[in-house]
């Protein structure tokens, strides 16, 4: 075992901690703060390393992929070591049963399905949540109990019978098999019900007096008031749909209809000797959720914390 930068760093951290502790003019507060940051930084580096590695693997030439752990040193940067070869192979036109397509098709399929499912879930869940929060009618308790109970059932239990229903409906290999069953979300209804409980009754009554329809009360009065929740929910729903693997893998068959998780899992076998190609695809596949997360970050965190404050 040879002595290297890592060991030097460990010794340096220990030395600084020891010095701060030994001086302890402030009862060890600065020593503790130093150690706290050292641990958090180390954890952050461990979390970020696979991302950095993925970016490097995407842009390294396939021939030098294993030569450097991350990027080659600056002195060796050239089009022989860093280039777009992996991406070019990934986006090469592919022959499928329905014609010739490129990787863009799978990106489009994934985007389309995720947007359709998110939009529908947002609409159906906020409506149902509004009804459960702002109307008292016989059976509302039963519906709420059913929703909470349904979250206890492992979804995999229903996959076999849902598969038979999809076969009987003739929806195998159709996007309908993915969009319709996941157009509603019990979890979403529960979240929106909790958020809509905070919509003041007086506001709704005032709108009623002015002659607004019940649908307008929901759409123009209640829905805008729970916007932070809607942002958080959209992110959760989009993530779930974008990363969904089992349902598209079971219900879709034609290559030109597949989504990113399914096609990339197949590429692991197809490109087993050039893994830069499916790694480039994986990098592209994780970009949209990351972009969406940074756009909605404020709403996401306020959505989370408001839920935590209400308990």
């Amino acid at each position: 075992m040879s002595f290297n930068v890592f060991h030097a760093l460990l010794i340096a951290v220990a030395a600084v901690y020891g010095a701060l502790w030994f001086l302890r003019s402030d009862h060890g507060t600065s020593a503790n703060t130093f150690l706290r940051y050292a641990v958090i930084l180390a954890a952050s580096v461990l979390v970020l390393a696979p991302f950095a590695w993925l970016v490097a693997a995407t842009f390294k030439d396939p021939d030098v992929l294993n030569e450097y752990v991350f990027f080659p040193p600056l002195s060796e940067w050239s089009s022989d070591t860093l280039n777009f070869k992996n991406l070019r192979v990934l986006f090469e036109p592919r022959q499928t049963s329905a014609g010739t397509f490129t990787f863009w098709l799978f990106i489009f399929n994934s985007l389309f399905l995720a947007c359709a499912q998110t939009g529908l879930q947002l609409f159906t869940s906020s409506m149902a949540g509004f009804a459960l929060a702002k109307y008292s009618f016989r059976g509302s308790g039963l519906v709420l109990g059913f929703i909470l109970g349904s979250m206890m059932i492992p979804p995999i239990l229903l996959l076999a019978p849902v598969y038979m229903i999809i076969v009987n409906l003739g929806w195998i290999d159709s996007f309908l098999a993915l969009i319709v069953p996941s157009a509603v979300s019990g979890y979403g209804i529960f979240l929106f019900r909790q958020a809509m409980l905070g919509v003041p009754k007086e506001l709704l009554e005032a709108a009623r007096v002015e002659g607004a329809s019940e649908f307008r009360l929901y759409f123009s009065v209640a829905l805008p008031l729970v916007r932070p929740m809607s942002g958080a929910f959209c992110l959760v729903a989009f993530l779930a749909s974008w990363n969904n693997f089992i349902a598209p893998n079971v219900f879709l068959h034609s290559t030109h209809k597949l989504t990113l998780p399914v096609i990339l899992q197949q590429y692991m076998g197809d490109y087993s000797s050039q893994y830069g190609v499916f790694l480039a695809g994986t990098l592209i596949a994780i970009l949209p959720p990351v972009i969406l997360f940074f756009l909605l970050q404020r709403e996401f965190i306020s959505g989370l914390t408001s839920g935590a404050v209400k308990g």
């Binding site: 159906t124 009804a131 109307y135 009618f137 019978p161 038979m164 509603v184 209804i189 019940e214």
Partner: peptide
Amino acid sequence: RRVVSAWLFLSPFLLVSGVFFIYPFLWA
């Protein structure tokens, strides 16, 4: 009118979960 609207708001959920949740649950 309000009771009817409440059930209308719930109807997409009830319809889809009837076909793709309750029925498959019994069938399972």
